[in-house]
Design a protein around this nucleic acid. Structure first.
Length: 487
RNA sequence: GGACAGGUGGCCGAGUGGUUUAAGGCAGCGGUCUUGAAAACCGCCGUACCUGCAAGGGUACCGUGAGUUCGAAUCUCACCCUGUCCGCCA
């Protein structure tokens, strides 16, 4: 969310930055300023009225305590007149405030100047190291045979079971078995250990179901609810639905004599009401699309002593994504799943530290791939390809020899104060009065499922077995090669 | 899920419709005193918004949201959360 004061002070720059993401934001600054102007005028008016009203109320109190009923009655009449105007203005102010917040909360973050222009991934650039060399690591292995894709490898091994995934849940679910399940676990453990022991992240186990406020804080709501799975606590909803049904039935008997018409109305109304209940924040929970959501929200509604910052959190959680709009993409294999494991990195820092923290976090993610000796490159995303919360994003893309291309395995973003404003997450130098919004950063460190794929394709042998990377051997209980059972 | 008890500032805690401008205490910050520290004493000590060049003035917030009232921390209703006991449960 953006600071309306900044928009007010610098509307052109604000809008120009937004339009780097999409031309559709043309005219938005003026629209916001108009709402804000009316909002402030209304509040000024209302505050003056309230001030008068408060003064009268106080006088009444004094009059009554002095038993001066005549004066009290006279003042009462005066107060009555004030009230009518008051109520109207109050309603107006609250609607303007809501409108402004709604508009602001739907706008994405402003890209940093160094973020390249562009509308999609075609304009992403290979990032550079400090010395100007391309940020590209590892040697791409040359194969004496056509390297296989992970799903072929996994299925021939008998450890990657797509049919069972479909049976148990549906498309985009997979069952890992035996040694591949073990390898997947080893990858997650390895990543957590690296981040906690070498990069100072604190290991966390957050909820994987979150409420509306949490989903709003990181920017999933209000705009992107369709990308998430949601669930309800049915037992608490059931009583509400029953009550609504009974209400309508009761009304139907008394209001309508023609039962056919009544049932049509009932059906429609019950549908609408049920929908309301299912969307009631009291009953619904969102499945997290990433641990960024709960971890970042740990700072929500807090004023943190700056001496305590940075906060660095890591967590290995399942992530759930509806993949609405991804129909037909990556349908084979387990590149794009409804459920996958990911080790997430989240940093909460003082405002002036976020740029340097972003580099540090990206290095933590890169270190995972370096230790696994997987070839990868680091891309700087263009304005149009970044997520809405980010000011700048690095994507780590790992080389997949079976696919003969780089694929995203991590995304590290500096969100500035955009999430902090939504969450009201602030910090303060101990002893000082001024509070400031924290800056938040998040990065995958890494997507475990995709890391598994990368290990499989890069470490495959001609006989279909997979060598276990050295870095993982402490985690695989002596297993150095993954091969078919019974061999 | 049921019963009961609760939710007031960073923390503890008083407050049953009108000098509440939320008492008092603790912690914290500044000062006096002191070679220094402690103690004592004095002062400061929430967040956000509106207004103003500023000094300042104003408004809102006592779990959340509605309501009653000229006036609500206080009364009414709904909800959320916490504690204790019971029930269920990995």
């Amino acid at each position: 969310m953006h600071d309306i004061k900044l928009i007010r002070d610098n509307p052109e720059a604000f809008e120009a930055a937004l339009r780097r993401r999409s031309q559709s934001y043309s005219g938005i600054a003026q629209k916001l300023i108009d709402i804000d102007k009316e909002r402030r005028e209304t509040q000024t008016l209302l505050d003056e009225l309230k001030s008068r009203k408060n003064a009268i109320s106080k006088e009444i109190g004094i009059a009554k305590s002095k038993k001066d009923e005549a004066l009290a009655n006279e003042l009462l009449k005066k107060a009555d007149i004030e009230r009518a105007i008051n109520d109207t203005l109050e309603a107006k102010l609250s609607s303007l405030e809501t409108k402004l917040k709604d508009e602001l909360s739907r706008l994405p973050n402003l890209p940093f100047d160094e973020v390249p222009d562009g509308v999609d991934e075609k304009s992403n650039e290979l990032a550079k190291n400090k010395d100007g060399t391309p940020r590209q690591f590892g040697l791409i292995r040359s194969f004496s045979y056509p390297p296989k894709e992970h799903f072929d490898l996994g299925e021939s091994l008998g450890y990657m079971d797509f049919a069972s995934g479909v049976k148990l849940a549906g498309a985009r679910f997979t069952v890992l078995r035996s040694q591949l399940a073990r390898l997947e676990r080893a990858l997650g453990q390895f990543m957590l250990d690296l981040h906690t022991t070498e990069f100072g992240y604190t290991e966390m186990q957050p909820p994987m179901l979150v409420n509306d406020a949490t989903a709003f804080g990181t920017g999933q709501l209000p705009k992107f609810g369709d990308d998430l799975f949601r669930t309800i606590n049915y037992s608490s909803v059931r009583d509400e639905l029953t009550r609504i049904h009974d209400d309508f039935t009761q009304q139907g008997k008394t209001i309508l004599s023609d039962m056919d018409d009544w049932f049509k109305v009932l059906e429609r109304e019950v549908f609408l009401k049920s929908n309301e209940v299912l969307n009631d924040p009291r009953f619904r929970y969102w499945l997290i699309p990433t641990a960024e959501v709960p971890l970042t929200n740990l700072a929500r509604d807090l004023i943190i002593d700056e001496a305590e910052l940075p906060w660095r959190f890591t967590a290995l959680t399942a992530c759930f994504r509806s993949e609405a709009g991804a129909a037909g993409r990556d349908t084979r294999g387990m590149i794009r799943q409804h459920q996958f494991n990911k080790v997430e990195l989240v940093s909460i820092v003082a405002p002036e530290k976020s740029v340097e923290e972003h580099e540090r976090m990206t290095e933590a993610a890169e270190t995972v791939l370096k230790r696994l000796e997987l070839p990868f490159r680091t891309m700087l995303l263009c304005a149009g390809d970044m997520g809405g919360a980010a000011r700048k994003t690095y994507d780590l893309e790992v080389w997949l020899p079976g696919q003969d291309q780089y694929r995203e395995i991590s995304s590290c973003s500096n969100c500035g104060d955009w999430q902090a404003r939504r969450m009201n997450a602030r910090c303060r130098v101990p002893g000082e009065k001024q509070t400031r919004f924290v800056h938040t950063l998040n990065g995958s460190g890494l997507a475990v499922g995709r890391a598994l794929i990368a290990v499989m394709e890069n470490y495959q042998n001609e006989d279909g077995s997979i060598s276990v990377p050295d870095a993982l051997r402490p985690y695989t209980g002596g297993l150095t090669k993954i091969e078919k059972a019974g061999k």
